[in-house]
Amino acid sequence: MNRKQKEAVIRAVFFSFALVSILILGLIVVSLFREGLPLFRQVSVKDFLFGMEWYPTYDPPSFGIWPLIVGSVIVTVLATLIAIPIGILTAVYIAEVAPPLLKDVFKSVIELLAGLPSVVLGFFGMVVVAPWLQDTFDLPTGLNIVNASLILALMAVPTIASISEDAIYAVPREYKEASYALGATTHETILRVVIPSALSGISTAVILGMSRAIGETMVVLMVAGGAAAIPESLFDSVRPMPASIAAEMGEAPFRSLHYQALFATGMVLFFITLAFNLVADYISNKFKEVGSGTL
């Protein structure tokens, strides 16, 4: 084999390794479908997605995941609302305001926060936040939407802050200098020039943060309370989709309808996060060439 052929073989081997990520995505879809799709022989897609009752162990059982979807959406939206300002302002702090030494310290803080295992945060929510909420607001339980959202926000912030910081950091110096030269103050420059220029990156950050929150399992499993019903107040318990899967899979008999319904729930969750990621990818790519975004 001469050198050119050898190089071509190496290249082909490397290429096939690079395809592994796609292969895994494919296998995820296949596995979920293989175990989850049989459910729809017995339960219609409409009843599954929009059914109001999740009673998988009753006789007859009922597999409506609408309350679970609502639970997921509500904790995710609330967590995002908390995480957006904190995440973006922290990014501004690190990229534009902090002195060099603190910059590194806060970058590490964010990295360590991102590195905290979710089960630890869930545990903290159970033993600290829950009793505090319960006493302060005189509630029957502190395991509820507010608690889950607070902890999820803490998990989404590192994602939002670090990607936003990259975006802010990438804003060309000239933009800022032009603004200062026109007599704008630092905060005016940041609010009117820097953040608008970094908007596509920040949007990507927010979407990925939401995606992280909606897929997060241990926190909602441990602190959302677990009630599979449409909540009426922010202090009600909910049972987001990941919590339902994690809590029930251990007890669902192998390849029973319940088992299949949990896989089907996983499918829903997978496609929701897939959509989030595709949108984030689209936004970050669309504006990459232009260099700035005007969303």
Binding site: R34, E35, G215, F263
Partner: peptide, 23 residues
Amino acid sequence: IRIGINCLAGVPSVVFGLFGLGF
């Protein structure tokens, strides 16, 4: 391939659990 890697990064951990179980 890049989109695939980004999407893989976004797959929820519990879905990875289901995948591991199913596959």
